[in-house]
Structures are given as C-alpha cells and as structure tokens.
Design a binder for these strands. Structure first.
Lengths: 211, 211
DNA sequence: AAAAAAAAGTTGCATATGCAACATATTGTC
DNA sequence: GACAATATGTTGCATATGCAACTTTTTTTT
C-alpha cells in the first residue's frame, strides 16, 4: 500500500494557507487521552498524523468494543462513525491529530483555493483505504470460529508486514475485542494452534508455520 | 438519510459532458446477471443507479459469502473491495449501473471541467454512506450470539424504515449469509424470539414487539 | 400444469465458545 | 522498590451454535 498523507502533493506554504482556510487545528495527545468524546454529536473530521488511536464504543450495557484501530492517516468523525451509542476516540500512543470542520472541507471555501481539489483527492484516497480496512475486519468477523478468525487476522498482518514472523500490534486483550470473541476462549485457541503446530509464539511475537 | 445521487446538483447537459469526460457507460442488467466479474483485477468504479446488487465472494473453499448488499447509489469497485479471492458483483434485481474508469475520475480530466468538483463531492458523500453501512454490518457481526445479531439487524432495519413492522429485504437464506451464521441455527433463533414474544412474524413480514 | 430448483422450516447431536473464577506475570505509578 | 493496575494464562461448566439430514413449502422453469 503506497504512502498516503492528507497533504501529499501539496506545497508547504499552501498547506499553511489551507489549514487557515478550513480552520484546522493540529493537536497533540498523550497516550490514553481522549481525542474526541461524543463523536456522534461533533461535526469535526479528524486525521491521525502521527501515532495511533482507537475508536471505542460503549453499548447500552456498557460493553466496550473497539470499532476500529486508527493508524497514521486514518480519518475519523461523525460521518464516518455510528449514529447512536457512546463513541469516543482514544489515543493508544502519543499522537498528533489534525481536527477541522467537516462542512468547511466539503463545501469548497469562498476563496476556492486551488489546493482544495488536491486535498479532496487525498481525502478520497484515505477513505478508500478506510473502506478496505473495514472490509478486512468484515472478512475476519464473518469467519464462524475463533480459530478461523485468528488465522484470518494473523494472515492479514503477516501479509501486510510481508513476513511470517511479526509482533502483534495489539495486546491479546485488545485483539479479543477486535475479533469480538471471549478473551479466554481466544487464548485457549491460540494455545491449540500452537500445540497443533500452525503457529509458534513467544509472548507477542508470532510466527505462522503453515497455511 | 437524505437523498443522494452521484449527479445531484449537476445540470443535465453537464452530466452528458461529464459522462464523456470520464468515459462512463450506463449499462442495464437483468436480475441474476453478473455485473462485474473478477472485481479484483478490474479498474472500474461502478455506481448502482437503479435496482440492487450483491457483492459476492467465493473463498478458497468455494464458500459463498455476501460481502455487501448494494442498493441505489452504492459505489463498488476494486478500490472499495478485497485484494484477494474471487469477488463478483451480481444483480439481485433488474438494474442500471454506471461504470467508468477509476483513474479518470481521480486524476482530474485535462479539460478540468467545472462539474468535476461537484462530482467528487458527491462521490465523497456516497463513500461516507458506504462507510456507515460497513460500520453497521460490523456492529452486527461484532455481536457474539445469533440472537444479538438478529436483534441488532432487525432494529437497524426497523430504524431505517421508521416502523416496527416491515418486510425483510433479504431471504432468510441470504440473511444467514449476511449475519455470517448457520441458517438452521438462525431459523431456530427466529423461532425462539417469536416464542418469547420479542418479535412476531408471518413469513418475511416481521414486527418488533419489545426492545 | 408439471417438473425442477430453491427456500423455509425442523430436529438430534457433538462441540466450540462464552462465562466465571481463578493464579501468575507484566507494566505503570508514586 | 513497593504498590496498584492491567494483561496474560488456565480450567470447569453450561449451552448456544454449527453441522447433517431431513420434510414441507414456495418459486422458477419448461
């Protein structure tokens, strides 16, 4: 997947102009800080410039579920999120986020600055990547057993890293949330996969043996 | 959800210009015909103008799964799909589709026709809606039991239609595929929900009683 | 209108999975 | 370095779910 950034192909001084143009704010957040609470009622669109974050949802029972893991260049905001429930965005590492008003981006600015076109182009690409990510998670969640979900996930990671060995980018607890399965049941299945020789693991370092 | 169309806000004669501009083809398909085979290796972007279609994936075992149900104004194509496996788009009713080259849309045309901007605006909106749809399905699939998946799905439909009573837009067989659960197990759970008074049903007509 | 194909509906069975309840290990904080 | 908090690892148990194998009903095709 080629490198992509919201400002790709835009000159530096133009970037400054544009940031003014749609009243963007670049903000830094420490790990575990809330970047955006009550996403549902906010009209902001955000882009992760550095670091990572999670979109987290609490349903009526207070159950936490990780909707999405945001990496660099992920786009988030009301339009790209749920309509209901309690959705917040939380930094999973120290990170830097660009926040601006969705409407100001969409409805081209009065000055109609020339870079706006390029910027929308970039946003479009970011959204495409997001859709691919969502489809990936759907592929995983559409598997019917924990084993299949795990293998599907691990193979995706492996394919992305281009290696059979890699470090899990999530804690096992987070992974269970991401796969939407019971953590202890997942640990059991990890063990089974190890015992049966499909994977070898040492803590968070994993190696796909077969498949 | 407000009305949206790829050509919204664009004058008729401009539409004709634009269709030339990025070499778009409007094609009609009969129910059950394949709209696009081998999506993965195609560079086309498609928009459903009338009717409906399914994005279907066959995995290595030949298992069919419905990736997505496309309704009017849905966007589909390689960029918005899987990287691997056998993905095809099949009409689920007589329908009309606009097909054009993805690159010609993205890289603004040489003439840089003024409506291009508006069109990208519209595509952006359609993609946002698509992301909401994907998130909806993720919400459903992240539920851990068939019962919860069903209720989640039915409530979404009910909310969209604005009624407690509605007709299922899928067959039960398709619904099971959509929820990624065993059909007979799902039927059993539908029956349980009926017996316990959560829903009442008569064939494909359903009514949410509680909840 | 008969035949064929697809969908809906049902049931028994084996087991994978959620849940609860732990112990141990790791990480973060003062 | 001590304490708290969080993550990891394990196990027993009840049951929800996938699977297989049917019958019946509905839809489509000839």
């Amino acid at each position: 997947m080629e490198e992509l950034s919201i400002f790709k192909g835009i000159a530096n001084n133009d970037i400054i102009k544009m940031i003014k143009c749609f009243d963007a704010k670049k903000i830094e957040f420490k790990k575990d800080r809330t970047i955006l609470s009550n996403v549902t009622n906010s009209n902001l669109i955000g882009i992760v410039l550095k670091g990572s974050a999670n979109i987290i949802r609490y349903d009526y029972n207070g159950n936490r579920s990780i909707i999405e893991s945001l990496e660099t260049d992920s786009v988030f905001g009301k339009t790209f999120s749920y309509l209901d429930d309690d959705v917040i965005v939380v930094a999973t590492s120290d990170c830097e986020v660009l926040l601006f008003d969705y409407d100001l981006l969409m409805k081209r600015c009065r000055k109609n600055c020339e870079c706006h076109t390029k910027l929308m182009d970039n946003v479009l690409s970011l959204l495409s990547l997001k859709i691919i990510d969502l489809n990936e998670r759907l592929e995983i969640l559409s598997k019917r057993s924990i084993r299949e979900k795990l293998l599907c996930y691990l193979n995706l990671i492996s394919k992305k890293k281009g290696k059979k060995s890699f470090y899990l980018p999530l804690t096992y607890t987070e992974l269970a949330d991401y796969l939407s399965v019971d953590r202890s049941a997942m640990m059991r299945e990890v063990k089974n996969l190890k015992d049966e020789g499909f994977i070898s693991s040492n803590g968070k370092k994993l190696t796909l043996v077969n498949y």
